[in-house]
Design a protein around this nucleic acid. Sequence first.
DNA 1: CAGTATCCCTGTCGATACTG
DNA 2: CAGTATCGACAGGGATACTG
Lengths: 129, 129
Amino acid sequence: MDDTTATPPGALRIDPSHRDVLDQVLDKWSVSILDQLCERPCRFNVLRREIPGITQKSLTATLRRLERNGIVERRVVADRPVAVEYRISDLGKTLREPVDVVLAWVTTHQARIDRARREFDDATEAAGA
Amino acid sequence: MDDTTATPPGALRIDPSHRDVLDQVLDKWSVSILDQLCERPCRFNVLRREIPGITQKSLTATLRRLERNGIVERRVVADRPVAVEYRISDLGKTLREPVDVVLAWVTTHQARIDRARREFDDATEAAGA
DNA sequence: CAGTATCCCTGTCGATACTG
DNA sequence: CAGTATCGACAGGGATACTG
């Protein structure tokens, strides 16, 4: 059945600038940071602790990139012992829904993807052997 | 204000396996291939032509990965002069909507993102100078 | 506390050449 | 036509050390 999944006429096509935005905003660590900052504003080391596996370097780089793209806001709270707070921007809030849609897709289809992978790997191995 | 930015109760959190799927399925070339195959099944060199900038190597690698994840199906059509057809799978069709949601987000907010980038770059440059 | 600076390693990507 | 094989260039990411 060529059901209604069939490509809607107005289907979107990707172009390099789209790619560029996706790379900057949906990369390895951005989604985790987004998750965290959607819950509450956070200081640097809180984010560091809440996101297992991330290094200072990657955290700094990702925060900078998200800040540059207007997704998060950086704000110096105190300066004696320096304190910096990151919070989600209004633009960033709008990103949450699309990301959740994608994550929901992953969750929904994960079992099927895993199965596909196993079958592929088995078939490949069998052929290769 | 500790407003209603407040995470909706059911908000999704990312985990490593989600990350892994996103990397395999929303990477540099996958979306373009998805776009193309959602329109019609294609042969290797047709895809190659339709997707500007992609190399054989990347096309092969991306198609294999998508095939492994059950997103596209590979099918040998003829074998005298070898002909191979790639088509979107049922699972792949379900990926289209989430991807379109993300692309729609990019399209909607691109101007704002561009502006944010310029402002950030200007501010950074001013500070750096 | 919140970074910056450096080194190094690995994976990725493109270009090129070759094959069934 | 549809790939595979190989190589060199390069960016991303981690570990470590240092700083205002």
